[in-house]
Structure formats: structure tokens, C-alpha cells
């Protein structure tokens, strides 16, 4: 750093002294400005990633040191049946969370309806789940889903359906969690879609209606294509969030829940391997593989978007 600084100083020596000092300071301040972000990212994101990759090649026991074991952790990954199940659950979760997109678009369109009264109230209500702590969300939904006393089953009973213990029943638990995940994301997605909808010029609709296009045709030929950049952005985020599913599983499924196997995601399995069983090296390998899967899926999404995303 200091050599580079000296080089700049030497070059600037020919110029008037005041300008030199100014340039010098520019350079310092530039780094100073980005330093907090770079340091934060480096220390809390990049360095842990590098470390995780290193530890994934080691056996890192509870308190002992890490010993190099080469690819052994990765070999074990493929022989442990729990990983296959967790991966499948994770994909189901990531895939189904895309269902939140049409819902969010509908919400965004409704909130954007001209002349809607109390619009700021509705916006607040839809956005509230986003800023609510996951622990509180989990607790409320655990009550709603209660098989004997839950509100969900009460409402179902009004139409003659006898509901089940939604998050304790192995066949329903995963989908019940997906629903909560989608519910918490709708507000955030809707904000992005509202911005996207507002940026569509109104003259396009006017022209279309003059040409005789109905509401449905306008939606599919104008709204959807012009909204596609937002849809793409939200779908990338939804898939990444879905793949990292942990908090709801951890908070809503108490120990001894018979649906644990059916809802275990890669990250929740990672947590129990690393912090409950003390197999941290092995868990690091799981994290690395999940990172690679996320990377591949995101790259695929970016490749495919060229076919359907229209940038106006």
C-alpha cells in the first residue's frame, strides 16, 4: 500500500503542491469509504467461506484441532441416506417457494388498484410478516397449525373438513412449512413487483385498449413481459432463500416431532451435524456442496433468463 502511495506521490511531484495533496487524499478517502464494507464482507463472509472449504477437507472434532483427511468427508456425503432426503426436501422447499411469485404479483396488482381505500394500511399489513422476527412467526403458526385447538382446523371444521396435526404429521409437515415461508415472503416480493408495475408506462395500455386488447390480453402481452426483470430477480432470491431454509424447521419442529425426517433440510441437518453431534469437518463439506448447488442453480437461472426476461 505504501509503495503504491509513494509511486503516486513521485508522479505527482511535478504538479503544484496543493493539487498533489488533494489527489493523494482522494486516493486515501476512496479506500476509507469502502473499507467498512470490504472489511465487513471480508471478515464475516469471504473469510468464513474460505475457512469452510478448508475445514471440509479435515476432521474437526468438538474441541480438538482439525486434521487433514482429504476427500473422506465428501465420500461420506454420498453414502449417508439422510443427505439424500434432506436434499430432496430442500429442493421441494426451494421449488415450491416459487409459488409465492404469482401470489405476490396478484397482491401487488391489488395494492396498486387505482382508488383503493386504506392502501397504506394494506401495504403495512402485507409487509408486517417480513419485519416480524422468525421466532414470533414460528410461534404463531405453530398455534394456528395445532391439530386439536388450531385456528386452521377450526376454519376447516366449518366446511366439514376434519384437519390433521399439520406440522406433526409426516405427510403434511413440509408443505405446512412451505406455506409459512411463502407467507412471510409475500410482502417483500410484492414491494418489488409494485415498483415493477409502476414503471410500466401507461401509454402502452392506452394504445393496447385502442387496438382492442382486453384486460387479460393486456396482462399477458404487456404487464408480464415488462415485469419479467422483477420476476427474475425475485425467483433467484426465492430459490436461494428456499435452499437455505433453516429457521422455521428449527423453530417449529420441536424435538420428538415425528415429521423431522420429512422436513429436514440441508441446513438444518448441517446444524445438527456440526453443533449437536460435533462433526464439524463433515458439516463443512455439506455447506460447501450446498454452496455449489446454489451456485449452479443460479447460473442456470441466469442462462435461461435470456430466453424469457425482457429488459425494456
Amino acid at each position: 500500500m505504501s509503495t503504491a502511495g509513494r509511486a503516486v506521490a513521485v508522479k505527482a511531484a511535478a504538479r503544484p503542491a496543493t493539487r498533489r495533496r488533494l489527489r493523494d487524499r482522494d486516493w486515501v478517502w476512496g479506500y476509507a469509504m469502502i473499507a467498512p464494507l470490504v472489511l465487513g464482507l471480508g471478515v464475516f463472509y469471504l473469510w468464513p467461506v474460505v475457512q469452510s472449504v478448508y475445514y471440509s477437507f479435515t476432521e474437526w472434532t468438538l474441541f480438538g484441532d482439525a486434521t487433514w483427511v482429504g476427500l473422506r468427508n465428501y465420500e461420506q456425503l454420498f453414502t449417508d441416506p439422510a443427505n439424500g432426503r434432506a436434499l430432496r426436501n430442500t429442493f421441494v422447499y426451494g421449488g415450491l417457494s416459487l409459488l409465492g411469485i404469482p401470489l405476490s404479483i396478484a397482491v401487488a396488482a391489488l395494492l396498486g388498484t387505482r382508488g383503493l381505500r386504506l392502501v397504506s394500511l394494506y401495504r403495512t399489513l402485507y409487509f408486517l410478516p417480513v419485519v416480524t422476527m422468525p421466532a414470533a412467526v414460528a410461534m404463531i403458526w405453530t398455534w394456528l397449525y395445532n391439530g386439536d385447538y388450531g385456528l386452521v382446523n377450526y376454519l376447516l371444521s366449518l366446511v366439514g373438513i376434519h384437519g390433521t396435526s399439520w406440522i406433526a404429521e409426516p405427510s403434511t409437515a413440509l408443505y405446512a412449512l412451505v406455506a409459512v415461508g411463502i407467507w412471510t415472503q409475500i410482502g417483500y416480493n410484492a414491494v418489488i413487483f409494485m415498483a415493477g408495475l409502476q414503471s410500466i408506462p401507461s401509454h402502452l395500455y392506452e394504445a393496447a385498449s385502442i387496438d382492442g386488447a382486453g384486460r387479460a390480453r393486456q396482462f399477458f402481452r404487456i404487464t408480464l413481459p415488462l415485469l419479467s426483470p422483477s420476476i427474475f430477480f425475485v425467483s433467484v432470491l426465492s430459490v436461494i432463500n428456499g435452499l437455505q431454509m433453516f429457521d422455521l424447521v428449527y423453530l417449529m419442529l420441536r424435538r420428538g416431532n415425528p415429521a423431522r425426517e420429512e422436513t429436514q433440510t440441508v441446513v438444518s441437518l448441517f446444524f445438527s451435524r456440526a453443533f449437536e453431534e460435533g462433526a464439524k469437518g463433515y458439516a463443512a463439506a455439506m455447506a460447501v456442496v450446498l454452496m455449489l448447488i446454489t451456485l449452479v442453480l443460479t447460473v442456470i437461472q441466469f442462462r435461461v433468463q435470456k430466453r424469457w426476461v425482457h429488459y425494456a
Binding site: Y145, N146, G147, D148, Y149, G150, T164, S165, I167, A168, E169, R254, G256, N257, P258
Partner: peptide
């Protein structure tokens, strides 16, 4: 009660 019920309650 079923295990599911005793998980909920």
C-alpha cells in the same frame, strides 16, 4: 393421544 397430538400439545 397420538404422538402427533402430543407433539402439538
Amino acid at each position: 393421544p397420538t404422538v402427533q397430538q402430543m407433539t402439538d400439545n
